[in-house]
Amino acid sequence: MIVAKRKPFEEILQMIAGHRKVLIAGCGTCVAVCLAGGEKEVAVLAAEIDMARRLKNQPIELGQTTLERQCDREYLAQLDDRAASYEAIVSLACGVGIQFLAERFPTIPVYPGVDTCGLAVNQDVGWYEERCRSCGRCVLDRTGGICPVTLCAKGLYNGPCGGTNRGFCEIDPEQPCAWYAIYERLKGQGRLERIRAITPVQEWRDTVPRTLLQPGYRKPEKAKS
């Protein structure tokens, strides 16, 4: 899932300093699961802002809502009749949701309440580890299901480098070496010959805003609103 981290309170307070009526909009999907921007985090942020502003003698009117998803128009549409009554919106969705919300209501400033941190696995409640950089060209078939782009400090497609040290990386003695792990995994599966295949370099210059159209689908003549 996409994981995010709540921005420091002072930063959020600064963003909305000039506003007197603000909507806090959470997202009920990824950021709710990683405890950054769901219904509960919306309630906590609203309470914090309310108290901080009253203590400064600058009371603020707040609205709080949590949409099922902020990356889908049908859920953003639920705010169509209400968004205009707010001076600004603080979104606790990931960067995708924040932008889609801002695109839907272009006349209203939309501020990020979280920093989006990547695509991660759930190791335990409140503990997430990144596994994918969504590079757009998956090599997990030849790396034993371990992503070198994400887990190797250099993002090497053909590793390891000279900095590998008894299973760990030169950047940090506690950081496992992705390519050591790949070697061990492939060896355990009897597929070690795979590690010899050279993977051509990624064409990072092609990293432009990507559009994905699944097979069998096409863009409508005019984007639905």
Partner: peptide, 16 residues
């Protein structure tokens, strides 16, 4: 508590 002299103004916007 200095907050006891004023009231919060928070509206729950139900998703329609």
């Amino acid at each position: 508590n200095p907050l006891k002299h004023s009231k919060p103004s928070i509206r729950l916007e139900e998703a329609a």
